[in-house]
């Protein structure tokens, strides 16, 4: 079986700044891959290249053996790729339920329908409610998003991505800015995601992230410095070098 995500020689420059330099990456189906690296290492840029928010300069991206290098990002969503954002981008005027329904609608043919009432679409409302239940927010389904806490919004981000039943899920710092309690909740949530979903995760909280990850990729200045299992990466002297400048 081909890799869930295979990246070959990916490069990207912003003007003279080379933010991604010949990155190779192969993530197996069901794997939990952690991407780490200091600030400015090009982690989020790599995510943006994978999801198609940015166009690659060169290189190839394959999604379950299918070349998606030039596919627009909305096609990638339809193929089964979902992501959460580092800076939360939700719909503040809508309720939580409608936020998740909007996520489900994105993959549904119903999205072009101008004649029916969105709120009455039980085909969307039921799975949306299930997705909210999964992140423990179903009791707030009718609350406007603008009246929720930061930690709740992080979980809605994940609920929206999970609702789409992705084959590959990209989580960009899902624990950033959360309290200890909230971290534990989100950690549990990520662990509970079944293995038919492949996960790529950027995270700075090593305690949690290392526990979840099967393999780790260390990026530095847009390059893959170390890649391997948890133990291999932690013990590698280059990891220390990158993080501590030793």
């Amino acid at each position: 079986m081909s890799a869930a995500l295979a990246i070959h020689g990916l490069t990207k420059s912003f003007g003279g700044l080379r933010v991604t330099r010949g990155v190779n990456l192969a993530v197996e189906p069901g794997e939990r891959r952690l991407i780490i690296g200091p600030n400015g290492a090009g982690k989020t840029t790599l995510f943006n290249l994978i999801t198609g928010d940015l166009r690659t300069d060169s290189g190839r991206i394959e999604f379950f053996g299918r070349n998606i290098t030039r596919a627009p990002n909305r096609h990638r969503a339809h193929l089964g790729m979902a992501r959460t954002f580092q800076i939360i981008t939700l719909f503040p005027r809508e309720t939580l339920l409608r936020n998740v329904m909007l996520s489900l609608l994105g993959l549904s043919k119903l999205r072009w329908n101008p004649f029916i009432r969105f709120d009455r679409l039980t085909v969307l409302a039921e799975p949306a409610r299930d997705a909210l239940a999964r992140v423990g927010l179903d009791h707030l389904a009718h609350r406007p998003l603008s009246e929720t806490s930061y930690g709740e919004r992080r979980r809605i981000e994940i609920a929206m991505a999970l609702a789409q039943n992705p084959r590959v899920l990209l989580l960009d710092e899902p624990l950033a800015g959360l309290s200890a309690d909230e971290r534990r909740d989100v950690h549990r949530l990520i662990v509970s995601i079944p293995r038919d979903v492949t996960i790529l995760m950027i995270e700075h909280d090593m305690d949690v992230a290392l526990e979840i990850a099967d393999r780790i990729t260390l990026l530095h200045f847009g390059e893959v410095v170390v890649e391997g299992t948890r133990a291999e990466v932690v013990q590698d002297p280059r990891t220390r070098e990158v993080y501590l400048g030793e």
């Binding site: 999801t51 928010d53 627009p72 990002n73 909305r74 969503a77 339809h78 979902a82 992501r83 954002f85 981008t89 939700l90 719909f91 503040p92 005027r93 409608r98 909007l102 996520s103 609608l105 994105g106 993959l107 999205r111 969105f118 929206m160 789409q164």
Partner: peptide, 17 residues
């Protein structure tokens, strides 16, 4: 609703398909 979504979060809408 989709149209309003493109007004509020165009990039997110693209990501959602």
């Amino acid at each position: 609703i989709s149209l309003r979504g493109t007004r509020d979060q165009a990039r997110r809408m693209t990501t959602l398909g």
